[in-house]
């Protein structure tokens, strides 16, 4: 059986020292090992940005695609081979700006994949511009007078789009993050985990200390029921989205692939490409 070391490769990440993304990488590797995956059965599909490089830093099948499109690529992979565990990953710009359309529709579609967003509230790789997750008034290279756009709440959007698994974590809390990734992988449907992942180079506001002071762990609310969608929405609003833990899970809804009529358990990629003469003749006869 594979251990978390089997999910390591010898590539040195090009992230800045202290970047929150390191812990997310470690959490994925730990979670993959602890749920009993083998590296060849995991596919990590990532977008573009600092965080997008993650697919190259895990020993598994990995595809580093184009900006904002990790989710449709990941959904294609899952449809082609549902025996694979598929993780899509990218930054807040990737998933909530250029790729927001795909995020909402991937949530609605509910294919059984895990989407991990490394949310640093800024554009790092392009050296410090505003993100949809930046706070109002946040000064960046592209918003020298402070951002004048409303901060996007991905958790609220996910819930209203019909998400079946919504969680949030903080890269410093490796234990919680690993556990949430494990739960997301076990969830039969689309899972969103938004992870606060501080950018130590360009974001001097939303720092590790700032998050530690501002976030609330759902563990502190023993009566919290993650199967209650209204309570989940309320909690997100009450905390201004600054909460961590499993926020919502719908275990009833079937995944997209389980709802396609006649879609087999066996991976489509393993099925024959051939068509019998009889089936062919039947198709052709419709045009006679």
């Amino acid at each position: 059986m594979a251990t978390f070391k089997d999910f390591r490769n010898n590539v040195k990440p090009n992230w800045c020292p202290g970047c929150g993304d390191f812990s997310i990488q470690a959490a994925i590797q730990r979670a993959a090992a602890s749920v009993g995956l083998e590296p060849e059965n995991l596919a990590v599909i990532s977008g573009i940005g600092c965080s997008g490089r993650i697919s190259g830093y895990i020993n598994a099948y990995g595809l580093h695609g184009i900006h904002g499109r990790a989710l449709p690529i990941a959904q294609g992979v899952k449809l082609a081979n549902r025996e694979l565990t598929v993780i899509a990953s990218g930054g807040d710009g990737d998933g909530f700006a250029i790729g927001m359309g795909h995020t909402v529709h991937a949530i609605r579609r509910n294919l059984d994949i895990t989407y991990i967003v490394m949310d640093n509230q800024i554009y790092g790789l392009t050296k410090g511009q505003t993100s949809p997750r930046s706070a109002e008034g946040f000064k960046t290279k592209s918003t020298p007078e402070g951002s004048i756009e409303t901060t996007l709440s991905p958790l609220e959007i996910a819930l209203s789009a019909g998400a079946t698994f919504v969680a949030q974590s903080f890269s410093s809390d490796l234990k919680q993050l690993t556990s949430l990734i494990e739960q997301a992988m076990a969830h039969k449907g689309f899972s969103l985990i938004n992870v606060f992942s501080p950018c130590v180079t360009f974001n001097k506001v939303n720092t590790y200390d700032w998050f530690k002071e501002n976030i609330v762990n759902l563990n502190e609310f023993p009566d919290y029921d993650p199967s209650n969608r209204i309570a989940a929405m309320t909690k997100i609003m009450e905390t201004g989205g600054m909460l961590t833990g499993l926020i919502y899970q719908n275990k009833e809804r079937k995944s997209y692939e389980d709802m396609i009529v006649g879609f087999k358990e066996e991976a489509l990629a393993h099925q024959s490409l051939d068509i019998s003469r009889e089936s062919f003749d039947k198709l052709v006869a419709e045009f006679k």
Partner: peptide, 15 residues
């Protein structure tokens, strides 16, 4: 964009 990238993902995975 989703149509073509989904097709790329599925081709990559063998269908």
């Amino acid at each position: 964009i989703a149509a073509v990238t989904m097709a790329i993902g599925a081709n990559y995975a063998g269908v």
